[in-house]
Amino acid sequence: MKTYYNPEDLKKFGNIGEFQPSLAEKFFAYYGEVFAEGALTAREKSLIALAVAHTVQCPYCIDAYSVDTLEKGCSEQEMMEAIHVAAAIRGGSSLVHGVQMMNKVKELSM
């Protein structure tokens, strides 16, 4: 069955340099450095990435960072809590616009 997303394509991510090598090289060097141990641990960064993967709803990233967080010894509870953070921000970002709606409604109402 043909689909827009093919799990096998994740393994080909490194091949994007085929069409534009220098930018790909710079991107992957930057990517590697972003995820290295720093002021945040590699483990913390992986949990952030897992949450962001759900926010941007990227199936490749969800697969990749489910594995990465497991490899880094995150518990299943930690992984789900990270996703709840993403969900809370997404939900909250809709809801906070309710203030704008209220402002408008109050402006127009007697």
């Binding site: 141990e37 641990t41 590699a42 483990r43 594995v67 990465d68 497991l70 490899e71 880094k72 010894g73």
Partner: peptide, 14 residues
């Protein structure tokens, strides 16, 4: 499970 261990130092810390 069916995955590889991540970096040893990070696991030790946790």
């Amino acid at each position: 499970g069916a995955f590889l261990p991540g970096p040893q130092e990070g696991l030790k810390r946790q």
